[in-house]
């Protein structure tokens, strides 16, 4: 993907204090409300994962239970049942039980899929959030610096961004992940273990930097030429103050709109990396790893692959809807398109 859904926002200059009409517009948008409720519900469910696993399902979603037994409707059944048909080869994990335990059935290690789904949501959301924050911070900073200072600084940073931008996204992510999964990350005093979920977050964040830096840079360049900034420079306001007071607030609306959209992209990227086995590592769960587990069971227990995919879709959908609504709320001219 080379751009975000719907394109970059327009850039009127807002002084702080005009957020109330934005919130008002957001509240009036029914689609946005529905999306927000859905997102909150998903987040709440995922945060409640330990509660669900301990109290309701009473299973340990990270402990292999291949030879385990459970009682369903009074009958004892094996969690992974041997196949008795024909030559009697292979075995199949138990399907959806409809009971509190193993609600959606078991995976090939005999673990409760529903519990793993919730824990997986935690991991996916956490990684996407951290990656987005990283993206925003680094990308925003680079964009501001490159756009404001211009000249050599801009040239160097732009070339770096070009290389990062042109590097086929998945290749970069895959290559970095293969190395990192092998030996972890060592950046001076900062050491991230190869099993740590922050590692894929770091990589996804890094890969997403150009998505943020480029539009921010373009906007800051325009701002730099605007009357009020030139005036501020003219009267000798120190640069840090200009950046803080004049540039950042205007850039913040762009960044804000990018947050949910970038979250959505990062969630998809994380799931793809986990699907390729270079994101979250076993036995930890993320929606991508559960899909991967599910693909090995696709012919016998398709629900294991379907459920996390649906979860991703609903989450990303609500994030996209929110992002659209936010953009429309921030720019009333754009909002005019809606009605």
């Amino acid at each position: 993907m080379t751009h975000l859904v719907g394109g970059p926002a327009a850039t009127p200059a807002y002084a702080p204090g005009l957020w109330r009409p934005v919130l008002r517009r957001l509240r009036a948008d029914r689609g946005a409300l529905a999306a927000a409720v859905l997102l909150l519900a998903i987040v709440a469910l995922c945060l409640a994962a330990p509660l669900y696993a301990a109290r309701i399902a009473q299973t340990d979603p990270f402990r292999s239970n291949i030879s385990g037994q459970i009682t369903v409707n009074g009958a004892a059944r094996a969690v992974i049942e041997d196949n008795a048909e024909g030559l009697g080869l292979g075995q199949t994990p138990i399907g959806p039980t409809g009971a509190a335990s193993y609600l959606l059935g078991a995976d090939s290690q005999g673990r409760d899929v529903a519990a793993r789904l919730l824990y997986g949501g935690r991991a996916s959301l956490l990684i996407a959030t951290v990656a987005t924050l990283l993206c925003m911070g680094l990308g925003g900073a680079l964009g501001v610096v490159a756009g404001y200072f211009g000249g050599v600084v801009d040239a160097v940073l732009s070339r770096l961004l070009d290389v990062l931008w042109a590097f086929p996204v998945y290749l970069l992510a895959i290559s970095l992940s293969i190395v990192a999964v092998g030996s972890g990350l060592h950046l001076g005093p900062l050491v991230i273990d190869s099993g740590n979920p922050l590692l894929p977050a770091f990589i996804i964040g890094l890969v997403g930097v150009p998505y943020v830096a480029r539009p921010v840079r373009a906007q800051v360049q325009a701002l730099r030429r605007s009357d009020f900034v030139l005036a501020a420079i003219g009267i000798g306001v120190p640069t840090p103050r200009i950046l803080l007071v004049d540039v950042l607030p205007n850039v913040s609306s762009t960044l804000l709109v990018l947050v949910p959209l970038l979250m959505a992209i990062n969630m998809l990227t994380e799931s793809a990396l986990s699907f390729l086995s270079i994101g979250v590592q076993a036995p930890a769960a993320s929606w991508g790893t559960i899909i991967q587990d599910g693909l090995a069971l696709l012919y016998t227990r398709p629900l294991v692959a379907l459920a996390p995919g649906l979860a991703i879709m609903l989450t990303v959908l609500s994030l996209n809807l929110l992002g659209e609504a936010l953009r429309d709320a921030l720019d009333p001219r754009l909002a005019g398109r809606r009605s």
Partner: peptide
């Protein structure tokens, strides 16, 4: 693994 039951049957 997930095709074993099918081919076996």
């Amino acid at each position: 693994a997930d095709r074993l039951p099918e081919v076996s049957q």
